[in-house]
């Protein structure tokens, strides 16, 4: 089955306490390209191998955390259909249309708040700026990677992990309305029937978004960016130490998704991840189940125990 409907995470909009230190982090340490700034003071970035205009948006605010996450869908017709489906589901609140151009080079976006309190958007159109690899025009006779990369330089914005209370409602929305598959779940309780974690895929990736049940609304655990090898994750660790960036944990491996990872913080305390690996997900792949008693190795496969920060530190 081809990837249709919701294609991928298209952008994440984060609030930062001070703009310029944040720009320095996302541009020079994480190594995203600054694409543009707008008259509201927002800064737009993309990772080197993303063709779309931007995937990370920063704005200065008094509170750290995530404003919203946007999903690219395959066509304007799908956007209209899914907007109708979300409305009909009755699962979401604060439904609205954001006009084209509110994000630079971006078509209209359908915005809604999901049961865990996070604001999500769907959009169909975003300008293509390319990955600067072509040698005879964009996408013609390309090199494998472009010149001039800075910092860790992940290839793309990959997924978010989010914390919220109504996990059941959010999982129902993503699986039954938006067409995601449940790649992995963490189950608690005596008969293992109470879901505390859900890892959801709209593509061939092990996850495009994940949620963990916590007694909060709309909280942000991390935004993750993709690297292509374990060695690049180790190199990321070197860069984070060289730049005295606050590291949370790693390099290590996740049991869930099998990804190799390092967690660190932007200058406002928003957690970032760079990771590599994982498996190929297909819609007919059986869901992987983890029991709560195995949550340690599920999250950090080598330490085999959860550190306090995993559940307590979020914005």
């Amino acid at each position: 089955m081809a990837v249709t409907g919701v294609l991928r995470p298209g952008h994440v909009a984060l609030r930062v306490l001070e703009l310029e230190p944040a720009v320095k982090h996302y541009r020079d340490v994480l190594g995203l390209e600054e694409v543009t700034r707008d008259d509201k003071g927002r800064v737009f970035f993309k990772a080197w191998d993303e063709h779309d205009h931007h995937s990370v948006v920063l704005r200065e605010a008094d509170e750290a955390g995530m404003d919203y996450m946007g999903w690219k869908v395959d066509s304007p017709a799908t956007l209209k259909k899914l907007a109708g489906d979300v409305e009909q589901s009755g699962l979401c609140t604060d439904l609205s249309w954001i006009p084209a151009g509110e994000h630079p080079a971006t078509g209209e976006r359908f915005r809604f708040t999901i049961p865990t309190g996070h604001v999500m958007e769907l959009f169909a159109e975003k300008g293509i700026v390319g990955n600067n690899c072509g040698t005879d025009g964009e996408n013609t006779n390309p090199n494998p990677w472009p010149d001039g990369m800075k910092g860790i330089a992940p290839s793309r914005f990959d997924h978010c992990l989010l914390y919220g209370d109504d996990l059941d409602g959010t999982v129902k929305l993503f699986t039954e309305v938006l067409g995601f598959g449940l790649a992995e779940q963490v189950m608690a309780g005596e008969d293992k029937s109470f879901m505390i974690g859900a890892f959801l895929s709209c593509s061939n990736k092990a996850h495009d978004v994940a949620f963990i049940r916590q007694p909060v609304k709309g909280k942000f655990h991390h935004a993750s960016f993709e690297l292509r090898s374990w060695e690049q994750v180790l190199r990321a660790g070197d860069i984070l130490s060289r730049t005295k960036t606050s590291i949370d944990i790693g390099p290590t491996r996740h049991g869930i998704t099998r990804g190799e990872t390092i967690y660190f913080f932007d200058p406002s305390g928003n957690r970032n991840e760079v990771f590599s690996g994982g498996y190929i997900y297909y819609p007919d792949k059986p869901t992987i189940t983890w029991w709560d008693v195995e949550l340690g190795p599920a999250i950090f496969y080598h330490d085999r125990k959860l550190n306090e920060a995993f559940l307590s530190v979020f914005t």
């Binding site: 306490l17 750290a64 955390g65 606050s246 949370d248 913080f265 932007d266 200058p267 406002s268 305390g269 928003n270 957690r271 306090e308 920060a309 307590s312 530190v313 979020f314 914005t315």
Partner: peptide, 11 residues
């Protein structure tokens, strides 16, 4: 307790 070290998480 040490969290984000950057003024965001409150730990």
């Amino acid at each position: 307790p040490v969290g984000c070290r950057n003024g965001g998480c409150g730990v």
